[in-house]
Design a protein around this nucleic acid. Sequence first.
DNA 1: TGAATAGTGTCTATAAGACAATATCCC
DNA 2: GGGATATTGTCTTATAGACACTATTCA
Lengths: 232, 232
Amino acid sequence: MATRDRFAITVDIALLTAQDGLLWTLLVDRSHEPFAGARCLPGGFVQPDESLDAAAARVLRQQPRLADLFIEQLYSFGDPQRDPRERIITIAYFALVHADRFREACGDSVDRVVGRVEVPWEGETGGPVTVSTEAGEPIDLAFDHDEILGMAVKRLRGRLNYSPIGFQLLPERFTLMQLQTVHETISGRPVNKDSFRRRMLASGDLEATGTRQRNVGHRPAKLYRFARRSAL
Amino acid sequence: MATRDRFAITVDIALLTAQDGLLWTLLVDRSHEPFAGARCLPGGFVQPDESLDAAAARVLRQQPRLADLFIEQLYSFGDPQRDPRERIITIAYFALVHADRFREACGDSVDRVVGRVEVPWEGETGGPVTVSTEAGEPIDLAFDHDEILGMAVKRLRGRLNYSPIGFQLLPERFTLMQLQTVHETISGRPVNKDSFRRRMLASGDLEATGTRQRNVGHRPAKLYRFARRSAL
DNA sequence: TGAATAGTGTCTATAAGACAATATCCC
DNA sequence: GGGATATTGTCTTATAGACACTATTCA
């Protein structure tokens, strides 16, 4: 029988939000080796009595103090060399949050920073991810966390086509234009407006609230809400 | 700082093949507790010096003696109670193989059995999986391995729409009808023949071999091969 | 020749893209 | 009224489904 070695297990969270046509994520400053001075995704060790999902929810609750978000397991990374000290296997998750809640919970702090995430298309596979500060300076990521972020964005892009996941990045009531902008931000490409409106209205995922925008300097758009919160 | 506990890690493989319009998987008899007498997916403990992918490839190489298959990480299961003895986290993989190779490598043996996998559609989410013997008798699966199988089939179904994954279940040269049958077997639903032919021929994934079937009792179909083995 | 499936051509229905025309708000 | 975006309607184009018809092999 094969030996039964044991390994430390972490969960790492790619928390994404959309604002100003860009995707943003929460990063944590690393104060100690390895990768001291670099940034990494928020994460933590899995405890003996908690499930993987529970560990991920706990990390989100403790580090950025966010609860009740959309969160989904992404992929597990287990290269023996990914941590130079000791072998650590990580279960990566990705989470989505509306920009206002993101800014509120992830605002300026000594050891946290907001990173701008960009993933080019490069055919179908998606290229390498780049992360930069709000000022545009490149950010170095520790471990394989750039790979995790890239995978999170690609997963999100894939979901967009057949699942109403974009709502997770918007406030409860939103306009079709806001929804379209979210889709364009995620996919990194322009979306045909007419077709997008038709598709969304026909999907059954939208519910008119009967209200409209106010004080917008032009004809106010109808506000919708996501119609099937239960069907996630 | 949080405690750094360590856990045993396994990889479990949902090895799928398609034959006679049904999906089949390889199962192993469990001779010891827990779940003695039940069946489980082939799996093994991750070794200190091997990556997760390498562990999965090793399991496939050792237990059913198969190499160079399509294999992809599926999901990680880490419920604290999933193994009653000790907490074991498993990284599930799914692999695809052509039916002839499957039968050859997984033929009758004392401790192995071939299970028929059925996953109903139930709207979009896919229902619970049922596994039965070739004779039709239900099979009990140990741990959460029924969940892994269900997830493997659903992942396969999802891939079918935008990725040429069906080729993995066919011999090198195949007819359009065989490819359609594979798609129908995976999705569990009939596929429109005309539209399917058009789509496949237009996709650029098929390359005519210039040969045809022989001795088929009707007009022989052209044989194709997968055109982009590199683009996986 | 007949059975059986392969393959072609055409028509229709549906969804996507393009674009013009009108509506509604704030200034 | 003018600026700006929302919303509706129509036309065109691409794709999917349906179905009739022809082609080719083996028994």
